[in-house]
Design a protein around this nucleic acid. Structure first.
Length: 641
DNA sequence: GTTTCTTGTCATATG
DNA sequence: TTCATATGACAAGAA
């Protein structure tokens, strides 16, 4: 039953999306929202079957809401209502090419016997627009192409380059036609009303729950779904004929989900074609909203069926939480974006690619960094750029200007500069512009002595003057910087701090430094790192304080609300108590005891039992003195032992 | 001159 | 043990 629920729910939702694409209003609410819906009755589960669809994850991300994962109302809201709205908003006429292909096919279906052989020849006559399966060379599992289709679609698509997606639709069209020949259409009115659709869906449910009709997934089933998807992108005007040619209920009743079918096909095809994929097509995958790292990135013709689910795929990929489960959406994206590219966005694609190529991938990586606390850059050294040490080193450390005191807490507030610096190494030359805050010590007179000429040894020695020609001697240097120069250390403070520990140890050993120099180098490194650590620590502390303040405000507001609620409740309770008292008096005044006298409201009361019966009971007066005495006695007894 | 804030540094704890 | 990091405490400088 769970499997049936899963398959049915997926099929239902996706069918709903597809029908919505072609403009058919499907009242999915009746399936998903109520307690007495067919789905609930069948699934016997606490949650809506709809929540098992992959785009259930939308609720976490869309509109920035953060909701509880078990809230059925939000499932309903996010998944059914708004997704359908988005689907409808996106419209169904985005790809008129496919519509034309379908119309031609409908005409040809009526008299295929006449046109068949000749069209086959036509197809051969135009190799440039040959069928996609032949292009891809993987049509082993597909029914032979109808020559008529080749003729008609060639005629239609000959006016424009045969895009991969378009060819894919033609191929699906073939599937549709094969199906139409094999099976008569039993439910031509399926898409006309939601009521009929519900009935047909219930038939599908029955088929799912019936083991005798439970069939394993086959290629035909796969084609059913593909046909269904293809039909959804056609125009509403052709709806009657579409439904006539497609056995939707039988497709629904099969034990295969659209997701599985699509993925199976997509992967099967993609695995065969990915190797021969041109580089240009690989670049087109830039438009994919997700990067699942899968190899099914080939915009194969089969994936063109994903065009029908453009909104679904797009919305699915808004969540970063798709992975393997979103293989379908990945396939759909590729097909969709391939179509988009072919619809005139290739120029944009090229521009985007060129612009992105100009950006160092490291920059993009760093932009994704969510550390937030660290003021560091990823200015990893050449030896171990990914070391933890480099992660804590700050590229904002400007050796030229401020040395060890040049760390800035404004890195976060100046992202543009930060981006520039993130792309650099710890070379001081690259960081010469990153002085944002100068809290350097005003150098004592002692350190303003004429600087010591550095021996200029080693590869990593740095220039001592900047572009302005202003020498470092004219500037305020940090204490460590001055010390380093005084000790003839041919490294900047930034270098000392940011270089990996292995390299630092090599420097200490390989340059013949004296003990004082080694000590100074270690101190400079320690102080520099601690400086960064202190900045991070303070930032964290401020963040914590801010968060606690917000929490306090929130709790105070909540307390106010609860107090108001309490007062309101107390008022209500008082009023109800008065009403009960009055009613009790009225009732008791009408009652008589055995001697015919009215009951005294002071001595009797009314008690309502669990069964709803009201009983007159004498008032039980608490024996205050007695209970108190008992307590006192108990205390005395306790004290005695 | 005093106060407050920011920043660097040290000492220490922890992993 | 060494190193990196975090954090409290203190001091110096700036506003």
């Amino acid at each position: 039953m769970q499997i049936a629920k899963k398959y049915f729910s997926e099929g239902l939702i996706q069918l709903t999306i597809l029908l919505s694409l072609i403009g058919v209003r499907v009242d999915i609410d009746s399936y998903l929202s109520g307690y007495y819906t067919p789905l609930i009755e069948i699934s016997l589960g606490p949650s809506s079957a709809y929540t098992q669809t992959p785009f259930h994850n939308l609720r976490e991300t869309l509109d920035g809401y953060s909701v509880h994962p078990k809230c059925p109302e939000l499932d309903y809201f996010f998944a059914s209502r708004r997704l359908l709205d988005e689907v409808r908003t996106l419209g169904s006429r985005r790809f008129p090419t496919q519509l034309n292909a379908w119309l031609v096919h409908q005409v040809s279906a009526t008299d295929k016997a006449e046109c068949g052989p000749s069209t086959s020849n036509d197809t051969d006559a135009e190799p440039g627009v040959e069928s996609p399966a032949v292009e891809a060379g993987d049509d082993s599992e597909r029914p032979p192409h109808n020559g008529q289709d080749g003729c008609q679609t060639t005629a239609e698509l000959g006016r424009r380059p045969c895009s991969t997606g378009a060819c894919g639709f033609l191929k699906e069209e073939d599937d549709v036609k094969v199906k139409a020949e094999e099976e008569p259409a039993p439910l031509t009115q399926l898409a006309h009303s939601s009521t009929l659709e519900q009935e047909s869906l219930l038939e599908g449910i029955t088929a799912l729950s019936d083991p005798s009709r439970h069939q394993p997934p086959t290629i035909d089933i796969d084609q059913h779904w593909s046909n269904l998807l293809f039909l959804s992108v056609t125009d509403l005007d052709d709806l009657d004929s579409l439904v006539t040619d497609t056995d939707i209920p039988s497709a629904i009743s099969q034990d295969v989900s659209l997701h599985d079918a699509m993925v199976t096909r997509a992967f099967g095809v993609a695995s065969e074609r990915v190797e021969s994929r041109p580089a240009a097509q690989q670049q087109r995958s830039l438009f994919r909203l997700e990067s699942t790292g899968s190899s099914h990135s080939d915009p194969s013709p089969d994936m063109a069926v994903g065009l029908a689910a453009l909104p679904f795929a797009s919305v699915c990929n808004l969540t970063g939480n798709v992975s393997s489960h979103s293989a379908l959406s990945g396939c759909l994206d590729e097909a969709v974006f391939d179509q988009i590219n072919q619809l005139g966005l290739e120029g944009l694609d090229t521009q985007l690619m060129s612009s992105l190529e100009g950006i160092n991938p490291q920059v993009l990586e760093d932009l994704d960094s969510d550390s937030g606390l660290s003021l560091e850059s990823s200015s990893g050294g050449p030896v171990s750029p990914g070391s933890s040490e480099m992660s804590s080193s700050s590229s904002s450390f400007c050796e030229d200007e401020c040395g060890a005191t040049g760390y800035s807490s404004e890195v976060d507030s100046v992202p543009s500069k930060g981006i520039m610096d993130y792309n650099t190494t710890w070379s001081p030359i690259d960081l010469s512009e990153c002085v944002w805050h100068d809290h350097s010590y005003s150098s004592p007179a002692l350190f303003h002595q004429p600087s010591v000429a550095l021996p200029h040894k080693g590869i990593k020695e740095e220039p001592l003057s900047d572009d302005d020609g202003q020498t470092l001697e004219d500037r305020d240097l940090s204490r460590d910087e001055l010390r380093a120069r005084a000790m003839c250390i041919p490294f900047s403070v930034m270098q000392i701090v940011n270089m990996p520990v292995e390299e630092f140890l090599e420097v200490l050993e390989g340059h013949g430094f004296s003990t004082d120099q080694v000590t100074l180098l270690r101190d400079i490194r320690r102080r520099g790192k601690n400086k960064l650590a202190a900045q991070n620590c303070r930032k964290r502390k401020l963040d914590a304080i801010t968060g606690l303040q917000e929490e306090v405000e929130r709790l105070q507001a909540q307390r106010g609300r609860l107090l108001k609620e309490k007062q309101l409740t107390a008022k209500t309770m008082g009023a109800v108590g008065q009403q009960i008292k009055q009613l009790t008096r009225d009732v008791l005044a009408r009652l008589r005891d055995s001697s015919g006298r009215p009951l005294n409201p002071e001595r009797f009361t009314l008690q309502c039992g669990a069964n709803g019966r009201v009983v007159v009971q004498p008032v039980r007066r608490p024996a205050v003195s007695t209970s108190t005495g008992n307590k006192t006695d108990k205390r005395k007894k306790d004290k005695k032992p």
